[in-house]
Every structure is written in C-alpha cells, then in structure tokens.
C-alpha cells in the first residue's frame, strides 16, 4: 500500500521500487527461514525421541 499525504507541503512524490521492497524482505526472510527450519528440525526430536 502506498502512502498518501494530507498536508500539501510541496514535496516531490516518490515511488518505492518493488525490487527494493522484495530485496529487503528477502534479506530478512532468508535468515529467518533458515532459523525456522533448523529449529523445527530440532523440535521434531521431541516427538521422534532421537
């Protein structure tokens, strides 16, 4: 969702590149997915016992 500005202060509008948003989310998403995967692997041992 893009932003809107109620007060007109004469600022030039900008456009946030979709690629930048995708890059930023990937940068935080990949380590998080790695951590989740590793933790699920560990958690599974609770149910398999080994």
């Amino acid at each position: 969702m893009s932003s809107s500005l109620q007060s007109q202060d004469g600022q030039r509008p900008t456009h946030t590149p979709t690629g930048l948003i995708a890059f930023a989310w990937t940068l935080v998403g990949v380590p998080l997915a790695y951590g989740l995967y590793q933790t699920v692997k560990t958690a599974v041992t609770l149910f398999t016992g080994g």
Partner: peptide, 20 residues
C-alpha cells in the same frame, strides 16, 4: 521523512533487520 508515495512495507524489514 518519507516523501508522498513512499511504500510503508519497506519499514517492517528495516525493523526486522535490527530485531533479528
């Protein structure tokens, strides 16, 4: 300060970059 049209969905990954 973001200019009009800035996409707010760029902010959560910035926050996550710190909290992670």
């Amino acid at each position: 300060v973001a200019r009009p049209g800035f996409n707010r969905w760029l902010v959560p990954p910035a926050a996550l970059a710190v909290h992670l």
